[in-house]
Design a protein around this nucleic acid. Structure first.
Lengths: 117, 117
DNA sequence: GTGCTGAGTTGACAGATGTCTAAGTAGGCG
DNA sequence: CGCCTACTTAGACATCTGTCAACTCAGCAC
């Protein structure tokens, strides 16, 4: 029994925060994504993955960027994966991570407040 | 000795996640904001405050929307305040909350991935 | 003043979270 | 096959977090 469902379909509903009160079920999904980004290490990992020149990046390039052990980095990557923010793919010896850009875009839209003059 | 500084000046630096790797100090600030939004109750509170018709909303209108005690709502509002996401203002008997829209806009920009084709 | 009501603070406690070490799995190479 | 490297999983542990009950503070009315 998983303590938290993996967000495979990246719901992230839609309506910007500022437009209308977010219903509870949508809030749970969006909050889960923000929670995953709520750790400095994970935010940096997500940034490194999202901004990777090749569109993806190897764990072996992520780990040495932090003064943390491999298992700890692996744990943070798992959290990002379960939040639907990144996807991973093993090719031979190495594992490559890439960002789920549509989910990032949806989250960005939720925070959008531009209509304010 | 506060365990965490209050983010008064709403740093939130600038460069979108996808543009370049976020430096550690900026990541700490942005992550703190996302962390505050990483709880479903707080996200709904933020949404109710941001979407309030009058631009602000009374705590007395927030509390009954949840099956939680007053102190718990008060705690969540404090977290949102310390993250620089909302501001409060006591007028007479009631306390009014309004959103810090510039900070929300900055966070939205951090997640922006539009340049992707 | 006393009393009432809205909101915040304090202290306590169960449960979640970040980190590590140790062990396990997957793939390449000799 | 064995061995090495890259990564993940499992357990343990200290810290942090969300919640509540009890209390305090601020403002209004009498």
């Amino acid at each position: 029994m998983p303590k938290q469902l993996t967000v495979l379909d990246a719901e992230v509903c839609c309506a910007p925060l500022a437009t209308a009160a977010v219903p509870a079920d949508a809030a749970a999904d969006v909050a889960a994504a923000f929670k995953a980004m709520g750790d400095p290490v994970r935010l940096q990992l997500l940034s490194m993955i999202t901004s990777a020149a090749a569109g993806e990046i190897c764990v072996c390039d992520l780990t040495p960027a932090f003064e943390l052990t491999g298992p700890t980095i692996s744990h943070h990557l798992k959290v990002l994966r379960e939040a639907g923010l990144v996807e991973s793919d093993r090719r031979g010896t190495w594992v490559w991570y890439r960002a789920n850009r549509s989910r990032l875009a949806a989250l960005s839209a939720v925070l959008d407040v531009t209509p304010a003059d």
